[in-house]
Amino acid sequence: MGFRKKSSKNPPVLSQEFILQNHADLASCVGMFLVLGLMFEGTAEVSIIFLILQHSVIVPAGEEAALGSKTLYYYGVKDLAAVFFYMLVAIIIHATIQEYVLDKISKRMQFTKAKQNKLNESGQFSVFYFVSCIWGTLILISENCLSDPTLLWRAHSHNMMTFQMKFFYISQLAYWFHGFPELYFQKIKKQELPGHLIYIGLHLFHIAGAYLLYLNHLGLLLLVLHYFVELLSHMCGLYYFSDEKYQKGISLWVIVFILGRLVTLIVSLVTVGLHLAGYQIENTDSDAISGNVNVLAAEIAVLSSSCTIQAYITWTLLTVWLQRWVEDSNLQASGGKKKKLVTKGKPSRKGTENGVETLNRVDSPPKRKDKCS
């Protein structure tokens, strides 16, 4: 997604063009207004809900050593306020990266509009996926999930989260929610909206599901795997976008993509089988009020959702690559026939259907690149 540059003309205040050009400044004003609310006693109690994570519980002294933290968190309605505030932060960071990094690269390279859109989209997602992978890996290490994989199917005591775990999920929800207003800010075409909405909606559905079902460790591990594959995808796309000689990078991403899907399915099946089912037997008083929502319905929903989405995106990838293979084969076949017609028949003038100029236009790299991107 790109960032609209400010034009020399000043549009009317609060008009659509004014909002599109200054949406990052408006988000900064709202965020600053919430921060300034901490300075006054009458508004501090409201502002603190937006800025600080809520729904915390102090761990008793007897359990403090075992849990390794003085304060744990559970989710609640007040989390929506934190998601809103950090969504404003995501909009500001998005605009900053666009204006001071991507726009300067695009201006220096003198890209076309189509290339600018590709650079903006892959550049923004690459930064987000890279930061999320590093952040998520550090949390997995600090939570001892890599040294003790059984944490994936053992629920945390009292079904609660540490501060860093909850802040990670709040930040993830805020980032993907910020994608909805970005669709308006960037004036996405109506025919492209369904694809963007599905992409954002699937991420929100699975992140919120792991957060609400207290599958924090499992969700974090799957997110890191998914983001790593997506990061490699956008990096390969940028390399191929800059030079079509990097076709091997695309092939490498396909292998990693399929392996990532297989690992995701295996981890999901093992976790559902060992954690959810076993935890339900040990806790027969499963209900959402007590914080234990790992019931049979949750087991079926988690497993079905994981298997369905992995099968869907794998099938989509295979369909796209099969279509590309067929189109490339047709292009090569049609190119061979046209060459024979040019050599056997009379030479045509430039711009005619059977001329060399038309043939070069059909097999030109830009069109083939657009199909791959």
Results as ranks from 00 to 15, higher is better:
Met1Trp: 06
Met1His: 05
Phe3His: 07
Glu17Ala: 13
Phe18Tyr: 11
Ile19Asn: 01
Leu20Met: 09
Leu20Ile: 15
Asn22His: 08
Ser28Val: 00
Met32Ala: 13
Leu34His: 01
Val35Pro: 00
Gly37Ile: 00
Leu38Ile: 07
Leu38Cys: 06
Ala44Gly: 06
Ser47Met: 05
Gln54Ser: 03
Ile58Ala: 11
Pro60Val: 06
Ala61Cys: 10
Gly62Leu: 14
Gly62Trp: 14
Ala65Leu: 14
Tyr74Arg: 12
Tyr75His: 14
Leu80Asp: 04
Phe85Thr: 03
Ala90Cys: 09
Ile93Phe: 10
Ala95Ser: 09
Gln98His: 07
Asp103Thr: 06
Gln110Met: 12
Ala114Pro: 00
Asn120Gln: 12
Ser122Ile: 05
Phe125Thr: 11
Val127Thr: 05
Ile134Glu: 05
Ile134Ser: 07
Leu140His: 01
Leu140Ile: 05
Ser147His: 02
Ala155Trp: 03
Phe163Tyr: 15
Phe163Ser: 08
Lys166Leu: 04
Tyr169Thr: 04
Ile170Val: 02
Tyr175Asn: 06
Trp176Phe: 04
His178Arg: 03
His178Ser: 00
Phe180Lys: 01
Glu182Arg: 11
Ile188Ala: 12
Lys189Tyr: 13
Pro194Phe: 04
Leu197His: 03
Tyr199Gly: 06
Tyr211Glu: 02
Leu215Arg: 02
Leu218Trp: 02
Leu220Phe: 04
Val224Lys: 00
Leu232Ser: 07
His234Val: 04
Leu238Phe: 03
Ser242His: 10
Gln247Ala: 13
Lys248Ala: 12
Ile255Tyr: 08
Ile255Ala: 08
Phe257Ser: 07
Arg261Tyr: 11
Thr264Cys: 08
Leu276Tyr: 11
Ala277Val: 15
Gln280Arg: 15
Gln280Trp: 15
Glu282Gly: 14
Ser286Glu: 06
Asp287Val: 04
Gly291Pro: 01
Asn292Pro: 03
Asn292Leu: 05
Glu299Cys: 10
Ala301Glu: 02
Ala301Asp: 05
Ser306Ala: 14
Thr308Gln: 07
Thr314Gln: 07
Thr316Glu: 07
Leu317Tyr: 09
Leu318Gly: 03
Trp321Ile: 13
Trp321Cys: 07
Arg324Tyr: 12
Arg324Lys: 13
Trp325Gln: 10
Asp328Ile: 12
Gln332Phe: 09
Gly335Glu: 08
Lys337Ser: 06
Lys339Pro: 01
Val342Ala: 14
Lys350Arg: 11
Gly351Asn: 04
Gly355Leu: 00
Val362Ile: 15
Lys371Arg: 15
